[in-house]
């Protein structure tokens, strides 16, 4: 299949006092349409930097990346839910459509559909301060999906949640992805999370990050909790663990 995203020798160096801090060193990879790819790596391997470059928030120092079909629409979920506190859950979700000047009725209809998909029915008018961490992150996921983006960028979206909520969110995200079939690039430092969700896992090396391993995750879908206790899951986890160290 034709890749939707091609990244070629992308590097980012942050200026500092002694010649610059090389955050990302020459990363190259491709992502196919509707693929769920996880970027795995130790802290400081430039995972988030790479994501910020792809989101257009940061200019790379070297290399380039190409989207098939030109300027893509991006949906992004950050480590924190990053909601606007003056807006209700529903109004937060409709934000991307507002930026595209979609009429209010259609905005509302599409948001209500997503609220149901992410399991927030009844919380349409809740303010962010009244939502738990998991609920806020669901709002953020719905917001990232509503404008039908070409690429979904997830930057450790469950990093700030407690362990139980995080694992429940894996199943939720997996289900949502099955329903919407987006191309996803997700940054994580959890091997279990990467294996549970991804079709492919890219392992970044220590700073400056390069792609050290490109591992296809051939676990059957839809995946349930059970898959995490299979022998094959364990073998894949071990490969990833070895690549990280």
């Amino acid at each position: 299949m034709e890749p939707i995203l091609t990244v070629r020798e992308l590097s980012v160096t942050f200026p500092d006092n002694n010649g610059g801090l090389e955050a990302l060193g020459s990363a190259s990879f491709e992502i196919c349409p509707q693929e769920f790819v996880c970027l795995l790596g130790p802290s400081g391997s430039g995972k988030s930097t790479l994501l910020r470059v792809l989101a257009g928030l940061l200019r790379p120092t070297g290399g380039d990346f190409v989207f098939a079909g030109g300027q893509p629409k991006i949906g992004m979920v950050f480590q924190q839910a990053n909601l606007m506190p003056w807006r209700t859950a529903l109004e937060n979700i409709t934000l991307p459509l507002e930026l595209e000047n979609v009429p209010p009725d259609e905005r509302r209809a599409r948001a209500l559909e997503l609220i149901e998909l992410v399991g927030l029915t009844g919380f349409e008018d809740a303010r962010p301060r009244d939502l738990s961490g998991g609920m806020a992150q669901r709002v953020a996921i719905a917001r990232a999906l509503i404008h039908d983006p070409d690429l979904l960028l997830l930057d450790e979206p469950f990093g700030s949640l407690d362990a139980l909520t995080r694992e429940r969110m894996w199943s939720e995200l997996s289900r949502i992805w099955q329903a919407r079939r987006k191309t996803v690039l997700m940054v994580t430092h959890s091997i279990g999370e990467a294996l549970f969700l991804a079709d492919r896992v890219l392992v970044l090396s220590q700073r400056p990050g390069r792609i050290k391993l490109d591992l296809a995750v051939d676990l059957p879908r839809p995946r349930t909790d059970e898959v995490r206790y299979t022998a094959h899951f364990g073998r894949l986890a071990r490969k990833l663990k070895e690549a990280i160290e």
């Binding site: 989101a55 928030l57 990053n82 404008h147």
Partner: peptide
Amino acid sequence: ALHDLMRSL
């Protein structure tokens, strides 16, 4: 972070 959100959109 909210500026980043707006710019990513």
